[in-house]
């Protein structure tokens, strides 16, 4: 069975959940081979976790020559692994970095590229959501090695162990790949809440919060949810940009999205329209967000959210 390369997305060796989802998808297509670019002290734990979630093979690449640089070296690693293994496909998590690696890799290897897949079939047919979620498209790579970036939550991780055979891989990194340096990196502070792109529930707030996010955060915590924000809330400096949902923020697709004090501009919709269930609280009954909702409350979020939070906490006892 052909190998399917899965580029591992991790922070200091801690594997991020979307990678485990990719392993489950890789299994549909062929034999999952994880590509782990990490430092030596991070590999053991990472390999164990990748194996537990189905990696048959793990290519371990020492990151000493790679980690200070932006995307280009990682594309070279994958190019060399494609030459070595002739995989059935390469799967990469759809994020800023993943898409850029994929873009470079596609040119390097003369391969077709599909980004932002929300599902991938055994034959490599992908499903994408396009035009702000108004259309779905099914597509296939027809040339070269299919390179597919997959959005978080496209599949459930499967905890069935693979063989996890480790193979050290020494990649050659060119000088020209080392021309864009990461000068400094400030890891995002852990909020204690789920990550926006991975969360099953998101509670977000907009200009209607007036800058007070406490009601939004309170409801989020009662529901075990991530917190999101509109660009208006980000532009006002109330929330960091990493919380922004929409065209120029995160595109999310949770089971439940609760929009509070958000009018529902097209750019915001572009980031949340494919959520399974949508709820809104807005004091303006004409707000366009109500066109999308499964359930809406016309009212002041500063009154509705704290009361709802209290009732939820009571129910939970």
């Amino acid at each position: 069975m052909s190998e399917v390369l899965v580029l591992v997305d991790h922070v200091d060796g801690a594997i991020r959940k979307p990678t485990l989802e990719l392993l489950a998808i890789a299994k549909r297509i062929g034999s999952p081979s994880a590509v782990l670019i990490a430092s030596a002290d991070q590999t053991d734990a990472a390999v164990a976790r990748l194996t537990a979630f189905g990696a048959e093979k793990v290519y371990v690449v020492d990151d000493a020559e790679i980690k200070g640089y932006l995307v280009a070296p990682k594309a070279e690693v994958l190019q060399q692994l494609i030459e070595k293994t002739s995989p059935a496909a390469v799967l990469i998590v759809s994020g800023y970095e993943g898409k850029e690696i994929a873009g470079r890799l596609a040119i390097k290897t003369g391969s077709g590229l599909i980004t932002d897949a929300v599902d991938v079939d055994a034959d490599g047919t992908t499903t994408q959501s396009v035009f702000a979620g108004n259309f779905t498209a099914k597509a296939k790579v027809t040339t070269g090695t299919p390179i597919i970036t997959v959005k978080p939550n496209a599949a459930a991780p499967e905890e069935t162990a693979g063989a996890g055979a480790v193979e050290q891989f020494a990649a050659t990194i060119s000088d020209s790949a080392k021309k864009a340096q990461i000068v400094a990196s400030q890891p995002r502070q852990a909020s204690g809440r789920p990550e926006l792109t991975e969360a099953a529930i998101i509670v977000s707030g907009g200009r209607g919060t007036g800058g007070n996010f406490e009601p939004v955060e309170g409801l989020a915590d009662a529901l075990g949810a991530a917190v999101g924000a509109s660009r208006a809330a980000v532009d006002s400096g109330w929330m960091p940009h990493s919380f922004q949902v929409g065209q120029t923020g995160k595109v999310v697709s949770p089971q439940l999205y609760v929009a509070n004090g958000i009018s529902g501009a097209i750019q915001h919709r572009a980031g949340m329209q494919t959520s399974k269930t949508i709820v809104a609280v807005n004091k303006d009954e004409e707000a366009p967000i109500f066109e999308l909702v499964d359930f809406g409350v016309v009212g002041d979020l500063h009154a509705v959210l704290p009361k709802a939070t209290e009732e939820i906490n009571q129910r939970k006892g």
């Binding site: 949508i278 709820v279 609280v281 009954e285 109500f290 999308l292 909702v293 499964d294 359930f295 809406g296 409350v297 016309v298 009212g299 002041d300 009154a303 509705v304 959210l305 009361k307 709802a308 009732e311 939820i312 129910r315």
Partner: peptide, 18 residues
């Protein structure tokens, strides 16, 4: 979807019910 008006806290209760 279903849209309710919040009156005397009924909105929150309906939301939690949903």
């Amino acid at each position: 979807g279903e849209i309710v008006k919040d009156e005397d806290g009924a909105g929150a209760t309906a939301l939690v019910g949903f």
